[in-house]
């Protein structure tokens, strides 16, 4: 990693302290081969488009006094024996700050490093904003860097694939509508072994509650569905699940800042709620 820094001409001191074990991820290792400095520059400038939609990352950059008081908030920093390279402000310094300072003119290798920091070393949990005396929104800043990476295709393969699935099927794990309905009916039978005549109502118009699981539940954790059915039945709740696409509440688009897919997922759920005249939407979390 330190070699990259020398080539990049970043203040070397920083990057020598940035020691990470290499991790193989084709989402980074393969896509980085297709990148050029020109492409990166174009994307960085399009996303950061200074002057428009910029208040939320310019205000923090111009305010941050580099006091590092935010570091105590971050579980990455705390769980790495207070390694300064995991401090929230350090992550902004090493990514967004450098991209702005160099107007996006950075090498693909540098960008790969940036992607690793914003995807794999921060959860965008926003705890640091509760510890910064200025309440600076660091998660938003790093989220914007994730968007740059996403547009460049530099995204961990697993989460990118799930986002592709969402954009094609509105669920996270490539389930067809048939798989989904079949799974619900199968789980209904399973629960009936314990509770007599239990139902998992599908597409029941006018129900109080529409439950939207995560795609992983029908795919690999079907017992969650059985448990939810038991709880709903015992609690006497008038509930249903949607038969049509837009039943999955996992929103990987949000995590990688694929705003287009993110909006379609949310919209899918709202559309179903309107179609079925539901009072409340309940999500798995």
């Amino acid at each position: 990693m330190a070699e990259v820094s020398v080539k990049e001409g970043v203040e070397t001191r920083d990057w020598i302290e940035l020691k990470r074990k290499p991790v193989a991820d084709i989402g980074f290792d393969e896509t980085v081969k297709n990148l050029t400095t020109e492409k990166i520059e174009k994307v960085v400038n399009a996303v950061l488009n200074i002057g428009k939609n910029a208040a939320r990352f310019m205000a923090p950059l111009e305010t941050c006094i580099h006091c590092a008081l935010c570091s105590t908030a971050c579980h990455w920093y705390l769980s790495h024996d207070k390694d300064p390279t995991y401090a929230p402000v350090a992550k902004v310094k090493m990514t967004l700050w450098e991209l702005i300072k160099r107007k996006g003119k950075v090498s693909p290798e540098f960008m790969k490093q940036v992607a690793r920091i914003v995807f794999c070393e921060c959860n965008l949990c926003r705890r640091c904003s509760m510890y910064c005396p200025f309440g600076l929104d660091i998660a938003y800043q790093l989220g914007m860097v994730r968007r740059i990476c996403f547009i460049l295709g530099l995204v961990p393969q697993n989460i990118l694939d799930q986002t592709h699935s969402l954009s094609a099927t509105l669920n996270q794990l490539w389930l067809t509508q048939g798989d989904w309905i079949d799974t619900m009916q199968w789980q209904e039978e399973e629960v009936r072994a314990e509770i007599k005549n239990v139902r998992i109502p599908i597409d029941k118009e006018g129900a109080d509650v529409m439950w939207c699981p995560l795609g992983t539940e029908p795919k690999v954790a079907t017992y969650h569905i059985a448990r939810t059915a038991k709880i709903m039945n015992v609690a006497g709740i008038d509930w249903t699940v949607s038969a049509q696409d837009g039943w999955d509440s996992a929103n990987m688009g949000m995590f990688i800042r694929d705003m287009e897919t993110m909006q379609r997922v949310v919209r899918g759920i709202y559309d179903n709620a309107m179609r079925l005249k539901i009072k409340r939407v309940v999500l798995t979390e």
């Binding site: 205000a59 923090p60 111009e62 305010t63 941050c64 006094i65 580099h66 904003s129 509760m130 005396p133 200025f134 309440g135 600076l136 929104d137």
Partner: peptide, 28 residues
């Protein structure tokens, strides 16, 4: 310069305070 934190302090805090308060949580 970033001494301007004196000015933006009131803006950034107001934003985070409102954003968190809206979700019924605190920012401290």
């Amino acid at each position: 310069t970033r001494l301007g934190h004196m000015l933006y302090f009131f803006l950034t805090r107001a934003y985070m305070g409102s954003d968190q308060g809206y979700r019924h949580s605190k920012d401290w």
